[in-house]
C-alpha cells in the first residue's frame, strides 16, 4: 500500500504505471516511453513491482470466475494511486469493466481511476503540445477495445461527431503524416485467445488490416494497444515487410528522429 505522502509527491499527482504482462516481456520500449512521457508532464510515476496480468485472457475465455486471486493481486498493487495508467487499451478496459475483489471499495476506486495512456494524456493531462518529432507516414490502428470500449475515437458505424484522441495527439507530432485508411476502424483479428483458437480467420483479418496500411503508404503502424500491434507485426515480419509497428507512446516521446531498430 502506498503512503499518503507518496500519493501526493508529484506536482500533478501520483501515477501507478500499469505495464501489462506481454508489454513487460516483449515491448519494454513502449513502457519506457510511457514512463518518460508521464514524467515529462510532471507526474510522479511509480511502478509497483510484482505486476502480473490483468486477468483478461482468463475472463475472455469464459473463466472470469477464476480471476479473483489475479484481481486481488492487482488491487493490492495499485491501491492508493491517484491514477493508474497503462499503455494498452484492452487491458485497461478489462480492469475498468471487470475488476472486483475483497477490497471492493478500493476496486471501485481503481476502476474509476484507471486510464489508457492516450485518454490520460488528452482527458486528464490535457496535453495540447508536444516536443515530439517523427517525420514518417504513419497509419493509425484504432484498436477496438480502446475505440469502442474506452471511447478513444468515434466509430464508423455510429452517427455521431467524428473524433479520435490518438489522432489528436499524433497531430501534435512534428513531421508526422497520418495516412488515410480504406477502413478506418476494422478489427485486426487478434482477439486474445481468438488468435490461436480461430487461427484462420484471425490471421486473415490481420493480413487484411496490414494490407490497408501498406496500400495507403504507411511506413509505421501505430496504435494505443500493443496486442493489436503485436499481431500486425507478426504478419508484417512474415511478409518480410520493412514497415514497422510502434506503440503511440514511442512516437509521442520521440524527441529526436526515431532510429529504427
Amino acid at each position: 500500500m502506498i503512503t499518503e505522502s507518496k500519493a501526493h509527491a508529484g506536482r500533478r499527482g501520483k501515477i501507478g504505471l500499469f505495464v501489462p504482462c506481454y508489454v513487460d516481456q516483449f515491448y519494454p520500449s513502449a513502457a519506457i516511453a510511457t514512463l518518460n512521457l508521464l514524467e515529462k508532464l510532471g507526474y510522479d510515476v511509480g511502478f509497483p513491482s510484482g505486476q502480473t496480468c490483468c486477468g483478461q485472457p482468463l475472463a475472455n475465455s469464459g473463466y472470469e470466475h477464476l480471476t479473483a486471486p489475479v484481481n486481488n493481486h492487482f488491487i493490492s498493487l495499485f491501491a492508493g494511486y491517484d491514477y493508474i495508467v497503462g499503455p494498452s487499451g484492452s487491458c485497461v478496459l478489462h480492469i475498468k469493466e471487470h475488476l472486483h475483489g475483497m477490497q471492493e471499495a478500493e476496486a471501485a476506486r481503481i476502476r474509476s481511476r484507471v486510464f489508457e495512456l492516450v485518454e490520460f494524456l488528452t482527458d486528464v493531462a490535457k496535453v495540447n503540445s508536444l516536443r515530439a518529432h517523427f517525420p514518417y507516414r504513419v497509419g493509425l490502428h484504432q484498436s477496438c477495445h480502446g475505440q469502442r470500449g474506452l471511447g478513444l475515437s468515434s466509430m464508423s458505424e455510429r452517427t455521431l461527431p467524428a473524433f479520435s484522441k490518438p489522432a489528436q495527439l499524433l497531430s501534435l507530432v512534428a513531421g508526422l503524416e497520418l495516412v488515410p485508411l480504406d477502413r478506418i476502424d476494422e478489427c485486426c483479428g487478434f482477439g486474445g485467445t481468438f488468435c490461436v483458437t480461430e487461427e484462420a480467420v484471425s490471421a486473415k483479418m490481420g493480413k487484411d488490416r496490414v494490407a490497408d496500411h501498406l496500400k495507403n503508404g504507411a511506413e509505421y503502424i501505430t496504435g494505443a494497444d500493443l496486442s493489436c500491434l503485436m499481431h500486425m507485426e507478426g504478419i508484417l515480419k512474415r511478409q518480410k515487410s520493412q514497415v514497422k509497428v510502434l506503440h503511440i507512446a514511442e512516437i509521442l516521446n520521440a524527441e529526436t528522429i526515431h532510429a529504427t531498430v
Partner: peptide, 20 residues
C-alpha cells in the same frame, strides 16, 4: 497456431521490470 501465418515478436534483452 500463431506461427502458421505470423512471426513471433522479437525477444528483447530485458523486460521493462528489469530495465526499471
Amino acid at each position: 497456431p500463431w506461427y502458421r501465418q505470423r512471426d513471433m515478436p522479437a525477444a528483447p534483452a530485458e523486460t521493462f521490470a528489469a530495465w526499471y
